[in-house]
Amino acid sequence: MIPPLARLWQPAALVLAIMLLIALPFGLERYGIYILSLWAVTTIAAIGLNLTLGYAGQISLAQGAFVGIGAYTAAIMTSAGWPLLVALIVAIILCFAVGWLLGYPALRVQHHYLAFVTLAFSTLAFLVFRNEQWLTGGIYGIFGIPRPTIFGFSTRSAQAFYYVCLGALGAVSLMAWWLVRSPWGRAFTALRENPLRAQSLGIDTRRYTLMAFAIGSAIGGVSGVLYAPLVEFVDPTPFSLVLSLNLLLMVIVGGQGFFFGPFLGALIAVLLPEWLRFTKGYYLIIYALVVMLLLIWSPSGILGILDEALTRRKTRRASALRAAARPTLDEGRAP
């Protein structure tokens, strides 16, 4: 029996974190608020990748490209006078469809082969962003992307737009939470852990693989739709393979397959370099070392460490209970 206080700490920590995120901009300057907004936007993209990679086990090096597709959709449409909400819907549909198509190679190849397929898509998307000047503005990009007005309230200020990003993060998190707690989430886990067994249980692994790619990509698109008005300018550089690798790093460092992994991963990838700026030219070196040491210590990421500790404790407790109770089954392997 878990004591009531122990059961309460998780919701209490969550409420505290939300309150902190709401209050934080009041104590920060414009740049600090921008970094926080960037964290929220990046976390959304990492949540999408966590669904594809962390839960469904499908490696993707294309998440940055979907952020780019979302950002360019928002930039092009809002510059042409369309509301951001319409751009959001278009970006979700577009990224979902492209993500679904990108999932087809995953039905035939896995692991590093799949990584190369998605890497090729990432490169292709970057070339489109850079070379199709008539649509994307090429290397000059698209300037002056407006921030939306929501129910008559302008989100022009850094603080107002931060709350838009935070609200979007909240909405995406709730949907992702629902998804991973649903039978779909369980099917994604089965797909990751043992596709052969999953098939034998009636799980249509083809459809779930495509869904994992499509939903993860659509969430990447949502992140891009927010990125464009946040920076108010898009050009191809931020959506190169480096972004995909960074998002992969966030998911792995935070803990792939853990719901809060992307939040922590993005915190480290976006905020840690900023906190290390006092070291001047050394900050990226220190950041790289911290990440390397962390992954050597715990390849399953930060939340993996916590999970292992909790599992050990639970196993010890269960063993003690079993030892105390009269066994109903003889346990163990035949000699």
């Binding site: 039978p183 369980r186 099917a187 886990t189 089965a190 852990e193 043992n194 052969l196 067994r197 034998s200 249980l201 009636g202 799980i203 249509d204 397959g257």
Partner: peptide, 22 residues
């Protein structure tokens, strides 16, 4: 299966729910 094919990270109950959900 001949070799064990349960889902190690899911609980016993979740393994069973997974086996019936589709």
């Amino acid at each position: 299966f001949q070799l064990l094919q349960v889902f190690p990270k899911l609980s016993v109950r979740e393994n069973l729910i997974l086996a019936g959900q589709e």
